[in-house]
Design a protein around this nucleic acid. Structure first.
Lengths: 218, 218
DNA sequence: TGTACATCAGTGAACGCGCGTTCACTGATGTAC
DNA sequence: TGTACATCAGTGAACGCGCGTTCACTGATGTAC
């Protein structure tokens, strides 16, 4: 990997009594920042995090049982962030399909801006972070229920296939968009072209796919 | 990770003079076998490979400059294998869409049977394996040109949208199927359901998506 | 208002581990004369 | 046909590294009396 010189923080001033939990926040923030800067999960060692926070390695263990638990906490926060970004993107928009389109775009944007976070969330070994992602949290990150709701709203409005399984369909949409995001992240040299245009093409394909199923079932 | 006891081979009998290259093949085969058994790239250390082959670690360096070069060679072989599997799957089939369907299914099947290989091929850091994947090899692995050819054949047969960009379209199809394969691999606990049925649903969605573009452009 | 003390938020040094890689070497074997 | 020798296919031991984690400790600070 490219070796990024991560700033070694000056020694952190000790928290006051009763405020020990501040360190926990500092650790999580440093870890997230380091992922952005280094773009490499493997640089996220206990020692490196401690150094970035300005504290000694054993201090990490005052707040996390082990490295996995720390990674889990980072994932948890990140997945909530991506979920929030999607919600914000379609806030106030009524048209179900436009909501879906914005949601997917927000997902793409977040992934491209936080590639290493996205990697950890979606591509790491499932047993490396044991209970890291419950089905619920994963579905939340993908916005599956929200997508499903938009699909159902579309069905009620007569714009989607009433015969189809909306939750299963939302999973398909997630898969397709995830495939796009992950390849853009993992194969940055490949000439896919402008992500925005690729996204529009993908969205159009999926849109037509769903819409055509409506036509077929009527 | 799950600790898999990898068989430690008895000491390999020394190759005869002039047959030193046999070790190279043995190393590559052992590495591929270990990836299947351990399901964890990180267990693919120089020492572990040497032990599995029945040879000492320095012997590896007789055939590979460093660990990256070895990984590159493994990737090369694997990507050719996945490409071959797709070709075999649609051999003798004339109908373009049926060819695409079988190609995608072969891609899925290969990925699910070789999850760790698939991970390395598609999800590893691009700079961890520097020139590991040229655009050409990557496109070959995804069968982009073959998919494009089928799409063009479909266009000429009047089954696809003549206005669309067939190469770009083949990339979209790759992304969608890759998203499916990678999530099935990385989130094995998530209740996606039977991969075959999910694939059929995905294929149907994409099929309708492309077909609908034909209708729209006519 | 002063002081003993429990508690809290850390520190410093060390552990054992597996890793990639290097270096000097060895012993069998084919070949030239 | 016999032998010296170059070459080939490895070996054995060691290097320095960064890692996660543990353990005994320290010193400031709030609190009870």
């Amino acid at each position: 990997m490219s070796t990024v010189e991560l700033a070694e923080a000056p020694r952190r001033t000790r928290s006051r009594r009763g405020e020990g939990d501040k360190l926990r926040e500092d650790i999580l923030e440093a870890a997230e920042r380091m992922l952005v800067e280094s773009n490499d999960q493997s640089s996220l060692s206990i020692r490196a995090i401690a150094s970035a926070v300005g504290v000694t390695p054993p201090s990490i263990y005052l707040h996390f049982a082990d490295r996995n638990e720390l990674l889990f906490a980072v994932c948890e926060r990140q997945s909530r962030e991506i979920e929030g970004a999607m919600e914000a993107a379609c806030d106030g928009v009524a048209d179900p399909w436009e909501r879906l389109r914005r949601r997917g775009r927000a997902y793409l944007t977040w992934g491209l801006q936080n590639p290493e976070h996205y990697r950890i969330l979606t591509m790491s070994h499932s047993d490396a972070t044991p209970q890291c992602f419950t089905d619920e949290r994963l579905a939340g990150m993908a916005g599956l229920q929200a997508v499903r709701a938009d699909l159902v709203a579309g069905i009620e409005a007569g714009a989607f296939d009433p015969m189809s399984d909306p939750l299963g369909c939302s999973e398909l949409l997630w898969m397709a968009v995830h495939g796009m995001v992950s390849l853009l992240i993992c194969k940055p040299e490949f000439p896919f072209g402008d992500p925005d245009r690729v996204y529009e093409a993908m969205f159009e394909l999926l849109h037509h796919g769903v819409a055509s199923r409506v036509a077929a079932s009527l």
